[in-house]
Structures are given as structure tokens and as C-alpha cells.
Amino acid sequence: MLWELSIIELEGIYTAYEGDDKPIIKDLTLNIDRGEYVVIGGPNSAGKTTLLESINGLVKITHGRAAVCGFDVRRSGHDVRKKVGYVVQNFYFDPFTPFNTQQVVMMGRYGRLGLLKRPIEEDYKAAERAIRMVGIEDLAQKTIGTLSGGQQQKVMIAHNLAKEPEVLLLDEPFSNLDFSAREFLQAILLDLVKGGTPIVIVSHAFDGLPDIRIHLVVMNEGRITKDICCPARAVEDIVRKSSLRQ
């Protein structure tokens, strides 16, 4: 039965950062189904990152209804975050960070495990698989802080793949990646989508989109200005036009 429900259902939500009165996201409604490839576009500070963090409950939803993976985000944020992968936009790991790639990827399993539980065989296998999928076997024993920006980006993607999420949110994951790395990542994302896992990606790079129907969401000033399904090649044009109009 669950298959017939949308995996992400937002209905008239408002979100505000802790200590702020003014909402960043205003009266936003959005449905995302299994197997969808969702692209979120829009100008800087439109609220794209805030939307992703409302979906997994990192930012507080003050009004409205939000259900993700069958959980009420406002009440069961932890349960949502256990099932939702999230590749954050800006991260910086200093060179002295005492964790290597393998350990960081493994941490992707920790949320699912829960308090007081130790990783078991299955978790190590999932981490190994994720490392292989992203093709960073050679970095497994390297300290995360000594990797290049693009390599760190790949590690964070592997961290989220190890989680085996029901939805994957990615915030500008291509910003540090070269052309071949982008193609490689797009292929991984396409595989996920084909397997039924929806992905929601905030991006400004539309050229490498896979040739499937894209669920395009354009945002401006905390609201959705466009919410349509279109072929990949139309995305760039639509985003540009709806940005010009403002």
C-alpha cells in the first residue's frame, strides 16, 4: 500500500531557522513519488538548501503538514533522517580530522544502527559496496582532510550510499567535480532512480542530466514558482526563463 503514497508530501509548510520569526520557506506544497528524478533550481538564497533541510527535519517546520517515508517530519525527525540521505552543500574537513575515508563512509550506517548498537558484518559490507560504487577504493585508508575537494565530495556521496536511503537529497553535488566525475555520479544517480529511490538534487549544472523525465521545481524567495515534469533537455531553458521573469 505504501507504494501508492508519495514518499515526500509537503503541504503548506513554513520553516524558520531557530531564533528567527520570519519564515524562509512560505506556504510550500510539494509531492515527490518513488523513482522520480527531481531537480531544484532557482537563484541564490531562494531557499533551496532550506527546502532540503525541511524535508529531513534539520530546520524546524513551524506550520503545515510534512510526511516523509511515512513519518511525520515535525514529530519524528530522527526516523526521517535515518531513511533520508543528505549530501550537504558546504563542508570543510581540516587536514587533522582523525578519520579516514573508510571510517567516514561507515558513519553513514550509524543513524540506522541507533544508540548503543555496534556495526555488524552487514554494515561493513554496505560501506564496502558504497566505496566500490563511487570508485574510491584507493582512498579508503587516506585521512579525509588530506583529500581534494572533489575526492571529499565523493566520500560524502559514498557515506550516503552506505546508508541505503529511501530518498537521496543532494545539495549542489557537482560543484567540486570535473566532467568525468559528474558523468560517473550521474550514472550512479540514474541507477538509484531506476531502482525506485527518488533523488532530489539542487543544482545549477543542467548539461549532464540523464535522458529521462525530470521533475523540475524552481524556487524563488522561499516559494515554488514552477513545479512541472519535463524532458531533461528542456530544464535549462525553463529555469532560465522563470528566473528572468522575476
Binding site: 529531513n56 534539520l58 530522527h78 526516523d79 526521517v80 533522517r81 535515518k82 531513511k83 533520508v84 543528505y86 550537504v88 563542508f91 574537513f93 580530522t97 578519520f99 567516514v104 558513519m107 553513514g108 550509524y110 543513524g111 540506522r112 544508540l115 560524502m156 557515506h159 546508508k163
Partner: peptide, 11 residues
């Protein structure tokens, strides 16, 4: 490692 990433993982 990183507070934000730890939170996002559902811990």
C-alpha cells in the same frame, strides 16, 4: 567528525 553530518545521518 562533523556535527551537522552526524545530525543528518539520523543519530
Amino acid at each position: 567528525f562533523n556535527m551537522k553530518i552526524a545530525q543528518a545521518s539520523g543519530m
